[in-house]
Design a protein around this nucleic acid. Structure first.
Lengths: 334, 334
DNA sequence: GGGAAATGCGTAAGCGTTTACAAAGGAGAT
DNA sequence: ATCTCCTTTGTAAACGCTTACGCATTTCCC
C-alpha cells in the first residue's frame, strides 16, 4: 500500500497525494477530501524512509540517555519528549549505556537517522580526555547538540546546566553552619557534574579553612545503586573506624541508603547524623525523616534544552551556555 | 557525504562500498580495508532512510510507553532496550501519553518507520470498548505486537504478563489472615491490569464470605501520583469517617503515601495499620518500616517479551500468552 | 592447457517519497 | 473571441541506498 495505490484509487497523481500528505495549499478542497477519504479507508501509512529521503527535515530530535532506568534521567526524558512533541517534533531515543564506545555508537546511529538535532542527557557525554570527545565534535558538525548537565565549549554545542558546584558548596556550608564537623562525601559518577559536585564540597571546606580529608570522600562504584548496598557500604566504613556526623551525597538514593545505615547503626537523624541528597526526587519524601536535598531544577533545565534547540533549528540566536542555580530544600534529615 | 563520495575516494564502485557496509563476503579483504579506511577517515554515516528503503528489515523494534517518568515503565524500558540491543536490534521509543488517540498516533508513527515489531508497555494499550482497539488490530496486521502486562486475543499479538489478579488476591488473603478486617483498596489506573488487581481484591474477600464495601475502594484519580497528595487523600478519607486497618495499593508510591498518612495520623505501622504496595520498586526500601509489596517480576516479563519477539521474527513458533506468578515480598509494613 | 567453478567487482534498476517545472483549465478583462 | 493570470494537477528527476545480474579475472582439476 503506497502512494501509487492511493493515487490510483483516488484518481489523481502521486504528486497530489503527496501534497495532501504534506498539507500543501495547492490542492482544491474537493480533491483533498477525496484523497483523505481513500487514505483513511485504506488505512494508509506513508513510508517514513521514503519521506526521509525526500524531505530535508523529518522533525525528529535524537535523545541520548545513558540509562533510562535511572529515575532522574527517566524524568528528564519524559519532560523532553513531552515538550518536543508539543512543538511538533518526534523523539528518537537511544539508551546507549555509559561506556564511551556505546555512546559514540548511539550518536552515530541517530545521525544516520537524520535527526534535526540531538539532546545528550546527563554529563556522562563529556569525556575527560579531549581525544575521546571526537565523536562529539563530529556530531556537532552535522546537527546542533544540546548538552543537559554538562559543558563543552564548541560551536553548535549548547549547554544547559545547573551550577552543581555552588549548589554542593551551599549544602556543605549549611552542614558546617549547623555544627557538623566531619562530613562524609559519597558520590557515584565521576563524570562532568560529578566532578563539579566534588569540587563544591572541597571548596566549601577550604573556604572555612578546614582541611579536606581524603578518607571522608568515597566513590560508590557499583554500576547500579541499591539502597541495601549503599547501607552496607556505609556500615563497612563505620566498622573501619571512619567517623562522620553528616553524609552529603551526589544522588538521592545514596542519601536513602545513608538513612538506612543510620537506622541499623542506631544513629538518630538528624541529631546524630545529618543527611543531604541530591536531585530532590520522590525518594526524599519516602524517608523518615524526609531527606534534605538539592533540587537541581530538572524541569527548568529540560524546558531550556527544548527551547534552545527550537531556537537554533529556526535559525535564531541562542545562548551557548545557560547556567541555573540549584536550591537546597531543607527537610527533617538536617 | 554519501556512498558515492566514499566509492570515489576509495576508487571502487558504490556496490562495493555497499557490500562492505553490509558485511558481504563477496569483497576481497584488501578492498574491504581500503573502503573501511576511507569511511573512518571521512567519518561517514550511512543514511538510514535510504537503507530502509532498500532493506526489508531495519532491525528496529518500536517501544510504546505511555509515560517514561513512571518508574516502573522506565525500568521496563531499560530492560527491553538493553536486551534488544544485545540481540542486534535498535529501539525506537514513543512516549505517547495515555489518551487513546495519542497511543494510536504513536503506533502509527512507529509503523510508518517500518519497525520489525512493537512492544506495547503497560496495559494502558488495551481498551475496554472493543471498537477502540481497532488501532491494535490494524497494527497487528503489519508487524508482530507484544503486549507487556496486558492480554488481547488475536493472531500476531503476543502477551506477556503477571497474574496480577491472583497476586492481589494473595496479598489480600495475607492481610485477612493476619487479622485485618477493613482493607482499604487504593488504586490508580483503570486499565487492564488495574481491573485484574481490583478483581483479585474482591475475589479474596468473597472467598472468605466478607462483603465488598464500596466505600473501601478508592481510585486515586490524579494523573501524577505524588507522595504528599496520596497522604492528603487518605487523611481526607480518614476525616470522612472511613475506617480501615490496612491499605492495599496498586502501586508502590500509593503505599508510600499511605505510610506518610499513618505518620501524621499517629497510626503505628504495622500494629495499627498494615500497608502493601505493588511492583516492589526502590520506594519500598526507602520507607520505615519497609513496605511489603507484590513483586510482579518485571525483569522476567521483559526478558520474555524480547525472546518472544525474537522468536516470532525468526519465524519460530511462540506462545501467544505467557503468564507468570507474582510474589508477595513481606516486609515490616505488615 | 582447457574448461568449469569460484571470486571480485560494476552497471543499472528498483525502493516510496518530495518537489521543480510544465501543462491544463477556468475566470476575468478587453 | 482572444489574451492574461491564477489555480489546480501531472510528469519526471532527484534522494542514498541495496541487490540481481553480468562480466572479467582467478583458481582448480584432469
Amino acid at each position: 500500500m503506497n502512494i501509487y495505490d492511493i493515487s490510483e484509487k483516488a484518481g489523481v497523481s502521486i504528486a497530489t497525494v503527496s501534497r495532501v500528505l504534506n498539507g500543501s495549499d495547492r490542492v482544491s478542497e474537493k480533491t483533498r477530501q477525496k484523497v483523505l477519504a481513500v487514505m483513511r479507508q485504506q488505512s494508509y501509512v506513508p513510508n517514513a524512509f521514503a519521506r526521509g529521503l525526500g524531505l530535508k527535515s523529518m522533525k525528529t530530535i535524537g535523545l541520548l540517555c545513558p540509562d533510562a532506568s535511572d529515575v532522574y534521567l527517566a524524568q528528564a526524558l519524559s519532560y523532553l519528549e513531552r515538550e518536543f512533541r508539543e512543538n511538533g517534533y518526534d523523539c528518537l531515543l537511544s539508551c546507549t549505556g555509559k561506556a564511551l564506545e556505546d555512546r559514540a555508537k548511539g550518536v552515530e546511529l541517530l545521525l544516520g537517522k537524520h535527526v534535526d538535532g540531538m539532546v545528550l542527557m546527563g554529563s556522562t557525554f563529556v569525556e575527560e580526555k579531549e581525544a575521546d570527545n571526537e565523536y562529539l565534535r563530529n556530531a556537532a558538525k552535522q546537527v546542533p547538540l544540546v548538552l543537559l548537565n554538562a559543558s563543552y565549549p564548541l560551536d553548535n554545542i549548547y549547554c544547559v546546566l545547573c551550577d552543581d558546584m555552588h549548589a554542593t558548596m551551599d549544602a556543605t556550608l549549611f552542614l558546617l553552619d549547623t555544627g557538623r564537623k566531619n562530613i562524609l562525601y559519597l558520590y557515584h559518577n565521576r563524570n562532568y557534574s560529578g566532578k563539579k559536585k566534588l569540587d563544591g564540597y572541597c571548596e566549601a571546606l577550604k573556604s572555612r579553612g578546614i582541611p579536606v580529608q581524603p578518607e571522608l570522600i568515597h566513590n560508590f562504584q557499583k554500576d547500579k545503586m541499591s539502597v541495601p548496598d549503599v547501607r552496607d557500604y556505609l556500615m563497612m566504613l563505620d566498622k573501619q573506624g571512619i567517623r562522620f556526623d553528616a553524609v552529603l551525597t551526589s544522588e538521592d538514593i545514596l542519601g536513602v541508603g545513608a538513612a538506612k545505615y543510620a537506622r541499623i547503626a542506631h544513629r538518630n537523624i538528624p541529631e546524630n547524623l545529618a543527611i543531604i541528597g541530591y536531585n530532590n526526587l520522590h525518594f526524599c519524601l519516602c524517608c523518615e525523616p524526609e531527606l534534605t536535598s538539592v533540587d537541581n531544577k530538572l524541569e527548568t533545565l529540560c524546558h531550556h534544552c527544548v527551547s534552545t534547540m527550537l531556537s537554533v533549528l529556526s535559525g535564531e540566536e541562542a545562548p551557548r551556555k545557560m547556567v541555573f542555580s540549584g536550591e537546597l530544600v531543607k527537610r527533617g534529615s538536617t
